[in-house]
Design a protein around this nucleic acid. Structure first.
Lengths: 229, 229
DNA sequence: CGCGAATTTGATCGACATCAAGTACCGTGG
DNA sequence: CCACGGTACTTGATGTCGATCAAATTCGCG
C-alpha cells in the first residue's frame, strides 16, 4: 500500500482564472492597509511550507493550485484540501503548520505575516471574527470530507469530487484539473487506478465529456448529485 | 452497507469524571459573568440538536458523552467526534448546526446562548480569539481524522482510537468506554464486527486487558503508538 | 434468574487494491 | 516537423482486507 510517485517533473502553467475570490476571502488580505502583502511564485511540486514548520505567513492563491496533506510513516498520503485561485490557506491558530503545502502547478501566492494579522485581530474585532469564520469554513469542508472518506463508495467519492471542482473552477460549464489522478486519489482515499476507472465509467455512461484526461465537462450534474446523495 | 441499529434502549449512567476540563475549555464558559449558563440532562440516545437546526446554544459536557455525526441518505453514518466531560461542542460560526449531536449515555450539559457569546466576542477580543482557538482545535482533530479515515488500516484505526480514549478518559491507567462498538465503527469508518475482531486480536496479543467489553486497560501503549505510526 | 441488546466469532463475499501491461500525451532536441 | 523519452493515464488480471451474512455467547439490568 506504499504510495505512488510524488516525484517532480517539467512545468506547466496557466491554471486558474486569476482571483475570482468570493468576497468573503478578498476582504481579509486587502481591507487593511497596515497588512503588507508580498507576492511569490512557486514552481510545480515545490514545497510552500512543511508539516511542523512555524507558521510565519498566511497565503492566498493568486494563480495556480496547492495541495495540503499529511503523510503516514510508510508514505501513504492524505490530501486534506486543494487550494485554488482566491483561496486562503496556511492560516493557523497555533504556532506551527499541521499539514504540508505544495504547489501543484506553477503557482503565485500573496502572503502576509501571521503576526501582523494577529495584531490586527487584537485591535479590530471584525478581523478576529473573520479569522474565526475562515477556520470555521475549513472545518466545514473537513467535516464533509470525513463523511466522504469514512462512508462513501468510490463512485460517490469521485462524483463528489467532480461536483466540487465544477463548483470551484468551472468557467464555461467545463474545467481543467490542475492535479494528477494520483493527487485526486490521495484526496479521495482511493488509488489512482480506481479514480481512473470511475471517471472512465462516468464517461461511458455519458455523465461527463473528456478532452484529454484533465479537461472535463459535466453533462449530467443532477445524476452526479443524486448518486452522491 | 446499510447501517446497524441506532435504536434506543434503557439508560445507564456514571460515565465521565465530572469536568476535569483542561484549562483551555473551562475559561470560556465560566470567565464571563454576563454569560448565563443553564444545565440540562439528556437521556441515552436523546438528540441534543439536529443537522440544519439553528445553532442557538453552545454546550459543554458536564457529565456523560455525546456523539456528533452526519448521515448519508441510505443511513450510513459518520461520527465526526465524541465529546466527553469538559469538552465544548455545538460552537458554530454559522447560524445552523452541520452535524447532529446525541447523548450516548445520560449526559448533563451546561449551555450558553450563542448570541450572548457573540456579543461578548464583539466587546472582548480575548473571547473572539478563544472562539477561534476552539474551532481551530476542532479542525486539528478533523485533519487527524481525515488521515485515519482515508489512509489507515483497520488495526491502525482501532489503535488510534484506543490511544485517543486513553488520553481523554483514562483515570488509573484504564477507562470505561461510554459508546458501543457500533458507535466506534461509525467513528472509524469500519463495521462493528471489524472493530470487535481487532480489539479481540489486541487482547490476544496482550496489548490490552478487558473487563467486560467496555472496560479497557492498555498494557502496551508504545506498541499501539508504533503500529499507529 | 431471564430477557434483550451488545458483543464475539465464524463463513463467505465483494469492492477496491495491487500488480502488470499497454497507450496517450507533452515537452525537448535533432 | 518529427522522433524520442518520460510521465500520466487507462485498462486488464488477480489478490486481499474488510464487509456482509449468520449464529452463538456474554453482559446488564429489570
Amino acid at each position: 500500500m506504499l504510495n505512488q510517485s510524488h516525484a517532480a517533473a517539467p512545468v506547466r502553467q496557466y491554471w486558474g482564472q486569476s482571483l475570482p475570490g468570493d468576497a468573503a476571502n478578498s476582504t481579509l488580505l486587502s481591507g487593511h492597509p497596515e497588512l503588507i502583502a508580498t507576492e511569490f511564485t512557486y514552481g510545480r511540486d515545490e514545497c510552500i511550507f512543511g508539516e511542523g514548520e512555524p507558521s510565519e505567513y498566511v497565503y492566498q492563491v493568486v494563480r495556480g493550485a496547492v495541495r495540503s496533506y499529511r503523510l503516514l510513516s510508510d508514505g501513504r498520503r492524505q490530501i486534506g484540501a486543494f487550494h485554488l485561485a482566491g483561496d486562503i490557506f496556511g492560516l493557523e491558530s497555533e504556532p506551527s503548520h499541521r499539514l504540508t503545502a505544495e504547489a501543484i502547478v506553477e503557482t503565485t501566492v500573496r502572503m502576509v505575516k501571521r503576526r501582523s494579522l494577529e495584531t490586527a485581530a487584537k485591535s479590530d474585532v471584525a478581523v478576529a471574527c473573520k479569522l474565526w469564520a475562515m477556520t470555521a469554513g475549513e472545518l466545514r469542508h473537513a467535516e464533509d470530507h470525513m463523511l466522504l472518506l469514512g462512508r462513501k463508495t468510490a463512485a460517490q467519492r469521485v462524483a463528489s469530487f467532480l461536483l466540487e471542482m465544477d463548483r470551484r473552477l468551472a468557467v464555461t460549464g467545463q474545467f481543467n484539473l490542475p492535479m494528477t489522478r494520483c493527487d485526486i486519489a490521495d484526496y479521495l482515499g482511493l488509488t489512482l487506478e480506481t479514480v481512473s476507472r470511475t471517471v472512465s465509467q462516468f464517461h461511458d455512461e455519458g455523465v461527463l465529456a473528456l478532452a484529454g484526461a484533465r479537461h472535463i465537462r459535466l453533462r449530467d450534474r443532477s445524476r452526479l448529485a443524486e448518486m452522491d446523495a
